Simulated scan of single mutants.
Amino acid sequence: PRSRRHALLCTALYCSVMCINGGMIGAFGPSLECFQRSTGLGQGALGTSVLQSRLAKLGGTVLWAWYATLIHSGKRVGMDPHTALSIHLVLTAMGCAVLGFTQSGFTLQAMMVLSGFAYGVTDSACAQLTIWAWEDDPRWQRGCVALINAFFTLGAFVTPMLVAFSLHYLNDSIWPAFHILSVIAIVSATLATRLQSPGVHTVGHNAKNSFSDASGAFESDVGEVELESRSLGEEAKHGPAPGSLSKRKPHGLAEHDEASRAPEAGCCDRRGGGDAGDKRTRLFLLCISVIGFFANGCEHAVATWLSSYGVHSSGLTEEKMAMMTSNFWTAMSA
């Protein structure tokens, strides 16, 4: 098992990664108008690019889920989790660096897809690895999962203000926010390669422990049977002690009856409770999925298009709408 210091260092790394992800999502919306002017893409093409980025993010999430399942099942995987995390952080850095100054519509669309895919992997990886890092301490586990999500909101809160600052003072430019994110991503990728990945209790490991426990219990039962057979053999030779037979037989019969009834009751309980438990689990997952679908849909739709809506429908400046996007993320964290 890793030390608590190692778990804290891992959590700090995941907080920085989540801050990058939140910053990238927070900077997208206020930058759409600038993207349109620099690349010549229309609102429809930009909307398609955002959709492609979100689909790429879904693909990255599915890829990490498959990768984490392989690790948890105990199968041999050629790539360490932190190595995979660092690779996708480099992809994020590349995407952010290009988004800051590109004037090509195709390049913009390609980088949005690339950064969206890397976002899907790193976002899921940070949540899963935080759980693995604190697997032996549920209290710290819950707190650290909440902490990394708070850093996501922090990133989404800061980058719209950076976009507003650069639009106002740097002659209609948005590169500072994306280039700062690129630098942080490179630093985080470097730290990820130097920090050992958290361990995980694999299914194979648990199964092995269960087999060892069962073997120990079997050997204990065999030992008790041998002792009982020896005592019965001695009684057959020398005769039972006075009063021992009358006491032994009812006690043995009672233990035998309880032992024979216990597995049957346990099996019945497991069968009856298992089906109901599976149904409750599926219903719970369905409800959480529906809530997550609508909550995330509203969250990202508003954060992405709030700036464009204010500029075109209300005549507000891009700087004001960027600050409003930052306030939106602040309200989300509350």
Rank of each mutant, 00 (worst) to 15 (best):
H168N: 08
P242S: 04
L167K: 04
C126G: 01
A262N: 03
A133C: 04
S182E: 07
T130C: 12
H251V: 07
P176H: 02
F165D: 08
E226R: 06
M161H: 05
P198S: 02
A127L: 11
A150R: 06
V225C: 03
G272L: 12
V183H: 00
T159Q: 11
F152R: 03
C268K: 14
V203I: 14
V158G: 01
P198W: 00
S220C: 06
C268N: 13
P160S: 06
H251E: 09
T202G: 13
A177N: 07
V183Y: 03
D172V: 10
F211Y: 12
V163N: 03
R271K: 14
L170F: 13
A177I: 07
T130G: 12
K208M: 12
I148C: 09
A262E: 07
V158P: 00
D136F: 01
P250D: 08
P176T: 06
K208F: 15
V200E: 14
T153V: 11
S229E: 15
A177W: 08
P138F: 03
G233A: 11
G143A: 02
H179Y: 05
T193N: 04
C126K: 06
S188R: 00
T193W: 07
T159E: 03
H201N: 11
S215Y: 14
K247V: 14
H238T: 02
Y169G: 00
Q196T: 11
L245T: 05
R194L: 06
A185N: 06
A146L: 10
A133D: 01
P198I: 00
E228Q: 10
